[in-house]
Structure formats: C-alpha cells, structure tokens
C-alpha cells in the first residue's frame, strides 16, 4: 500500500475556498531510464488523480511521465457542506489507491 499524505482543513465556513494538498509515495518511473546493466526500466506511473466531495468529483488530474516522483498536488475547492473528501489515484494499470478525510462546514 502506498503511503499517502493529505493536508486539508477539518473545519471551514460555508463558501470558504480551501486549499487541499495531497502527496503519494510513487516512483513515477518514466520508462526512459536504464538500469546498471543497460536494460530499459519499464514505465510505471500514476495516471489519474481525482478528488471527490461527498461523492461528487470536484478536481481531476491526468499525469504523464513528466510529473515528479512521489507526486504532490495542491488545489482548491469551495466548502459547501459537511462531509467526506476522498482523494483517489489510479495507476497506468487501473489500480487505485485512496484516502478520505472529514470536513465540518458551519
């Protein structure tokens, strides 16, 4: 299981624009490198990231090999109601990793 770090406020005012930060442990192997025996290292990257706010998609990213290892993302969303923020990554083979945090909106 990949290690994931999420930074999101736990409380926010309704209508407040909040910053969400997410980082996941992943090599983002480009497919352009060779090992010490000269053999090509196969590409292995995370392809998609999506953030769901109470199940509704609020931000999507598509990654290419040019995203640095251990991808970091910062983006914004408007606090509308209390609930769950889910952060989900999908790799090139369709395998998903995700983590959720709770947000209380008043």
């Amino acid at each position: 299981m990949s290690t994931i770090r999420i930074a999101a406020p736990t409380i926010a005012n309704k209508g407040e624009v909040i910053e969400l930060k997410a980082m996941i442990q992943h090599e983002m192997e480009t497919g352009y490198r060779r090992d010490r025996f000269g053999k090509e290292i196969t590409r292995d990257i995370l392809k998609y990231f999506e953030c769901f706010y109470n199940g509704e998609s609020v931000f999507k990213a598509e990654f290419f090999a040019a995203i640095a290892a251990n991808p970091f993302l910062s983006f914004f969303t408007t606090a509308t109601e209390s609930g769950t923020l889910e952060f989900r990554w999908i790799d090139q083979n369709g395998v998903a990793s995700s983590q959720s945090v709770e947000l209380e909106v008043s």
């Binding site: 290690t3 770090r5 930060k21 980082m23 996941i24 442990q25 251990n70």
Partner: peptide, 8 residues
Amino acid sequence: FANPGYLW
C-alpha cells in the same frame, strides 16, 4: 507537509 521524506 510537502517534504517527500515525510512519506518515509
């Protein structure tokens, strides 16, 4: 937060 070393 963003220092990737903290993943480890």
